[in-house]
Write a protein that binds this DNA or RNA. Structure first.
Length: 270
DNA sequence: CGCTGACCCTGACGGC
DNA sequence: TGCCGTCAGGGTCAGC
């Protein structure tokens, strides 16, 4: 489920409920996530106060005086704040109970997500080698052009490579390339310099638009407030195989690239 | 070093 | 109805 817009939606939704709160108790019902939840984690966090909630790539970083809690939602994860106690449902793997009431609850059916505690987030192996934020200043046409030289991979896979730029997942890679009119299979290293301005703008625009709509709910994504995202209605190619291109009417094509479904207009995108 | 494909896991859905 | 194959928004890792 979550790409950058969904994670950012979650961050914004949770911030008023969790920042400034003191953790009373952490309850781990199922530690077998992408990486096992450390047995020492609940004890380490008990009594800690959350001072900040930030996002880096698709990670949520809860800054506490006991270290930084890193949460990744994987494919199927979601975080919700519950003001009142609620019976855990299937796949509700982790609860963070706050002093004074309220619970932050992680649900993740496929368990590709992760919950980690670190004292040194900047140099954590999972974060250290990440590329620039797509909505930050470092991500511009010059950067992406240089990062693409001599690369033989398809531009779509290139955009989804977290070392190149973070946060661009399967939905928004297809959507951005449609907006930039670039064929997803075009070799990254063979794209003309002039096309990188529109491409970078397309990536930024589609992510910004999606954040404004509260992300994309395909199956089960809900933001921190439990609301689904509404960007699905704005998707132009994703999951539209066979339907007419909104620009030219040609049927949208679907092809598998690097084991991921890829959607594009074979007429508009070159 | 760059790149490909296997793999982690559960659930929904369509075909038979 | 039930079984089976396919697919799903994430990422790491081994191997060439």
């Amino acid at each position: 489920m979550p790409e950058l817009p969904e994670v950012e939606t979650t961050r914004r939704g949770l911030t008023p409920y969790v920042v400034g709160r003191t953790i009373e108790r952490v309850e781990v019902r199922e530690p077998r996530l992408r990486w096992p939840v450390a047995t020492a984690l609940p004890r380490a966090l008990a009594g800690a106060r959350i001072g900040t909630l930030e996002r880096r790539a698709k990670y949520l970083l809860f800054g506490t005086d006991a270290g930084t809690l890193l949460v990744h939602l994987g494919m199927s994860g979601s975080l919700r704040y519950l003001p009142a106690p609620q019976e855990p449902a299937p796949h509700d793997h982790v609860d963070v109970h706050f002093a004074g009431g309220g619970t932050l609850r992680l649900n993740d059916p496929r368990r590709f997500g992760s919950v980690l505690l670190t004292r040194t987030p900047r140099t954590h192996p999972l974060l250290e080698h990440l590329g620039p934020e797509p909505l930050g200043e470092a991500f511009d046409a010059d950067y992406l052009y240089r990062a693409s030289r001599n690369r033989r991979v398809a531009i779509k896979q290139h955009l989804m490579n977290g070392r190149v730029v973070v946060g661009v997942g399967n939905i928004y890679a297809s959507e951005a390339l449609f907006r930039a009119r670039i064929h997803p299979e075009r070799m990254a290293g063979r794209i003309a310099r002039a096309r990188f301005e529109p491409l970078v703008e397309a990536v930024r625009d589609v992510l910004r638009d999606a954040i404004e709509e509260g992300g994309t709910t395909l199956r089960n994504f809900v933001g921190g407030d439990g609301e689904p995202g509404y960007f699905r209605a704005s998707l132009r190619v994703y999951e539209r195989a066979g339907l007419p291109c909104l620009d030219c009417g040609a049927p949208i094509a679907r092809r598998v690239l690097g084991q991921r479904a890829t959607y594009y207009c074979p007429r508009c995108q070159r």
